[in-house]
Design a protein around this nucleic acid. Sequence first.
DNA 1: GTCTATAGGCAGATAGAC
DNA 2: GTCTATCTGCCTATAGAC
Lengths: 193, 193
Amino acid sequence: MARTAENGTAERILDVAEALVQSRGFNGFSYADVAQELSISKAALHYHFAGKAELGEALVDRYAARFSAALTVVDRDEHDAPAKLHAYARLYADVFKDDRMCLCGMLAADYATLPDPMRDRVVRFFDDNERWLARVLDAGRSKGTLKFHGSARSVARTLVGGLEGAMLVARPYGDVRRFRTAASLLIDGLAVD
Amino acid sequence: MARTAENGTAERILDVAEALVQSRGFNGFSYADVAQELSISKAALHYHFAGKAELGEALVDRYAARFSAALTVVDRDEHDAPAKLHAYARLYADVFKDDRMCLCGMLAADYATLPDPMRDRVVRFFDDNERWLARVLDAGRSKGTLKFHGSARSVARTLVGGLEGAMLVARPYGDVRRFRTAASLLIDGLAVD
DNA sequence: GTCTATAGGCAGATAGAC
DNA sequence: GTCTATCTGCCTATAGAC
């Protein structure tokens, strides 16, 4: 595989940084936090990621790639639109652990303070999600398994916002059920009677 | 009125700090930012608010009081449930200006890093909102002007989350219409056909 | 690749004069 | 009430040894 040894460390840095950003926000964690958690020096972090901005970019890239891969799996495993939507909501619910919320939802809150390259990536994440959802919604309406008013794109945006917001508000209560109930209501509202 | 002169400064501090927190988050602004904007010294800020934590508490208190007062006005001016819900959504839309989102939505993102007194106030804000909405929803269902599945409390939570999330996601796009479209879809889904 | 040491800046906060 | 001056600590980042 000719894989260099540094790969392990970079991944572990991303793992720790990701958890920190998801729970504390981009301005709520430091290189020192990551270094301490991994028992390495701050300087070592700078070897793998030039600065916080570059670490942030890598964070969103990896998160978006994983999410995209998960959507591909959903497309492969679920064949009707309602099932795809429930699987989609489950992806969000899986994120909701250890005080975490969606990485990009958190970064949307931090948006005003983010460097441009990170901003672009966050917007692209939402765009990709909306596109995927709009496709599922359109297919469901055509097949008669879903019904809704307005454009598929509008409903897709409402769903993304609704799920992100459900995580945001559920987190202070530390209660996953709060998220799941909201997610179910959002999606069941699209079911045919 | 026997109102002391310091009142003006404290209010202006709160105004500036509020705007900063709503756009940058609680960890994204500093006493120096507020001081510079008002052309006063950081030490002057500490005279009015002992520390950042106390400033944060005052911020949420004032915001919650204003929101509560606005809900009272809605109750007085609007008499059917659908109109109240639309007025409620308008309160949110009014907040969405100059890169701002709901103060408590932003603080929900920062929740893991907040001091306890601020946490309690944020949760209370959401509780109050849910209680008000649940009351409106129940009344609307009884009167036959609204229809929905599940408990009024669950739908209330879904609405709060949906609206907060709609702001969160619309902000990176700097597009109020994105928020309004989502808000309309959420509320129109409760209308009787 | 990882370390120690350190630079340079900004954070929140305090002391004491006016 | 507001100021200047200052403290302490943490932040991101770099230099240079191993």
